[in-house]
Computed example of a mutant assay.
Amino acid sequence: MDRFERAFALLAVHEGGYVNHPDDPGGATNRGVTQRTYDDYRCRHGIAIRDVRSITDDEVATIYRNQYWDAVRADDLPGGVAYCVFDAAVNSGPGRAARWLQSGIGASVDGSVGNETVGLAASVDPLRLIDGYCDRRLAFMKRLRHWPTFKNGWSRRVAEVRAQSKAWAANGTTQPSQVAQPAKADGPESAAATLRDTLTDGKSVGTIAGIVGSAGALLSGHGPVQYAIAAVLVLGALVGVWWLVKGRNA
Rank of each mutant, 00 (worst) to 15 (best):
T117Q: 10
A48Q: 12
L235F: 11
W242A: 13
I55K: 03
E5C: 12
Q164K: 11
Y133C: 03
G17A: 13
G216S: 09
R6V: 07
Y83R: 00
A122W: 08
L127G: 06
L127V: 14
G16N: 10
A163E: 14
G187Q: 09
P148H: 07
T56H: 11
S54Y: 13
R156N: 02
R65M: 03
L120N: 11
W69V: 04
G79T: 11
V124A: 14
A250G: 12
T173G: 09
A192R: 11
A82Q: 05
A230V: 07
T173P: 02
F4L: 10
Q35I: 04
A228K: 03
S190Y: 08
D186C: 04
G213I: 05
H146V: 00
D135P: 05
I130W: 00
V234L: 15
Q178N: 13
G27D: 00
T29N: 03
E160I: 00
M141N: 09
D110K: 09
R136Q: 14
M1P: 06
Y41M: 08
R6P: 01
P148S: 09
G132S: 08
T37E: 12
G216A: 07
Y133W: 07
G153L: 05
L195R: 07
A28M: 09
N171K: 11
T149M: 05
E15R: 02
